[in-house]
């Protein structure tokens, strides 16, 4: 449906875009995600089911479902380019390849670091186990390519490299040994994504000029999208505001 909103580009403009591989004149889409409403309290995670985990923390870890900071800033929102004809063409022409540098996901203190991350199809995901206890990394994409690997605790941190095969928003990753552990991977066929930090800030860099549908995804609060136009080198600022989902609102 967003196709109808989009301004059609002329043929010469598209070809000039295709030449802009170096992204020298690329733009930046940045902004914040915020939460509007009563801030929920996150429960402390009970780790007594594996005493090793409990021993790794002098203070409780809290669930990371909804983390709201000052002024309603919302952490762990995955912001990414959902659709764009320019990008599709570039992907089709093989101009975007997955980086060989891995994305690192660490398991430390029975907790995934990071909780939300983006990764490209085929890009190595270095899964590290810094704990001396077993974790199994159970990635459950719906589109295929699920994996479930056991990573026993060894005296030294160690890692295994995996990769996702199909793009998917979002692939849940969990540990069946420690059921509180959860992480989400945004698997894309391009590198234009960002995850909001504690201040709720995100920044998608190096975008070639063009029209983009940007979506923000939150594990509990749902998704929301906006269309932006990036001109040569000009930064674009947008913001996303999330509210309590309807189901929870009716409960309250």
């Amino acid at each position: 449906m967003f196709n109808c909103l989009r301004i059609r580009f002329s043929v010469p403009l598209i070809s000039s875009l295709l030449l802009a591989v170096s992204f020298s004149e690329a733009g930046i889409v940045s902004g914040t995600a915020t939460f509007d409403g009563t801030v929920p309290t996150m429960k402390a995670i009970k780790m007594d089911s594996d005493p090793y985990c409990a021993l790794q923390h002098t203070q409780s870890l809290f669930k990371e479902t909804v983390i709201v900071g000052e002024n309603g800033s919302l952490k762990n929102v995955f912001v990414y380019v959902k659709s764009s004809e320019e990008l599709d063409a570039m992907i089709e022409n093989g101009e975007i390849t997955a980086p060989t540098a891995p994305v690192v996901m660490d398991q430390k203190g029975c907790h995934y670091e990071p909780h939300v991350f983006g990764i490209m199809v085929g890009q190595p995901l270095e899964i590290r186990n810094s704990d001396q206890t077993l974790h199994n990394v159970h990635a459950m994409p719906k589109q295929g390519g699920a994996f479930n690997i056991g990573m026993p605790g060894k005296p030294e941190p160690w890692s295994i490299n995996k990769a996702f095969k199909v793009k998917e928003i979002m692939v849940p990753i969990k540990c069946d040994v420690h059921s509180w552990m959860s992480s989400f991977a945004g698997v894309l066929d391009h590198p234009f994504y960002s995850v909001t930090d504690a201040q709720g800030k995100f920044e998608i860099k190096d975008l070639p000029p063009g029209d983009y549908v940007i979506e923000a995804w939150h594990e509990k609060l749902g998704t929301s999208e906006q269309t932006v136009t990036v001109a040569d080198g000009a930064p674009v600022a947008i913001s996303f505001v999330f509210t309590k989902p309807a189901a929870e609102a009716s409960e309250a």
């Binding site: 009970k46 780790m47 007594d48 005493p51 409990a54 021993l55 002098t58 203070q59 409780s60 809290f62």
Partner: peptide
């Protein structure tokens, strides 16, 4: 809540 890991700690 800090008491919970502490309890488990003594257990271990």
């Amino acid at each position: 809540f800090g008491i919970i890991p502490a309890l488990a700690g003594t257990l271990f």
